[in-house]
Amino acid sequence: MTVTPWGEVIPDKPKAAPQPPVLEVKDLHVHFRTDDGRVYAVNGVSYDVAPGESLAVVGESGCGKSVTAMSILGLVKTPPGIMAGGQVLYRGRDLLKLKPRELRQIRGGKISMIFQDPMTSLNPFLTIRRQLTEAVELHLGLQGDAARDKAVDALRQVGIPAPEDRIDSYPHEFSGGMRQRVMIAMSLVTGPELLIADEPTTALDVTIQAQILELIQRLQRERKMGLVLITHDLSVVAGMCSRVVVMYAGRVVEEAAVDDLFADPRHPYTLSLLESVPRLDEPAGRKLRPIEGLPPKLTSLPAGCAFAPRCRFVRDRCKKEAPKLEPDAEGRKRACFVPIRRGRAVDGR
């Protein structure tokens, strides 16, 4: 991706790669019914992933990243969840409208998912072998030894030492990092086109985090697989992904190529987010600014922009009207009324 002077060139990627996206999330709305009222968890999220592309989804805790990801595979429990609207298109087919049988072929077969906590995401009562081979049997139609060999192979690829011996172990006999490797092996053994990794390293030690991310990246490149990487960690995003979607309170507030986003965030929330973490490409000693205030209550969202109460660029209009995700003058997609360049409002202040 080339850095373009503002206002001139539309990013070249859509033109250079006219491939249709593997996955398109369109105006997704997901709510939850709870004792304290309806939780508006996802309110019109849209993003897409091209084949072989890696997309990052970032945002504060509770902003709806996981719920969106789970909705893709229909893993949101209804009730209490309510799929209130929108589409999830996989190669043009709306996954939300598929019959259970059709959806099952896609789950784990075409689209796989890795979850945050490897300590609880593996079934403690079943051997690793059983948990791997059941996916192989289901999606690849292999049985017996063939399935086992495939599973051993998958374990080897994710760097489990002596996979032939380890395959008959139970999850509790593995460390956290190893378990996440097993999870990765499990989700990739069927050769999916798209991998959704929901904070795959949050629960791991820092040293292991890097290894796991590297592994995911390597496998993604090797297999030319689409990747949706959900994360808190912006430094991860820079190294691994080509495009970023920033979410806030169940909405996408900015979507941009990674380099654009880091170089010049166009949404006040993205700006604050970047200011709140240390960056490698900046001189040390820069003051970190945590985002002030709290994320809004999802039970009663404000009428205007959800970020307005915490926004330093806030205008009167922001409190009355919710901005849509639209390209600005330079084609950068963002949901804000205030034009922002290089951390400043263009119209003064």
């Binding site: 595979l73 893993l75 099952r104 072929q105 784990g108 979850f115 593996l122 009562f125 059941e134």
Partner: peptide
């Protein structure tokens, strides 16, 4: 409501397999 049941769903297993193989033991 355990995570590993969600994992099993994400694999594309059928409900009765999930119930019998993954959930019943626990």
């Amino acid at each position: 409501n355990q995570d590993y049941i969600r994992t099993a769903w994400a694999k594309g297993l059928r409900e009765h397999v999930i119930v019998v193989r993954h959930a019943l033991r626990g």
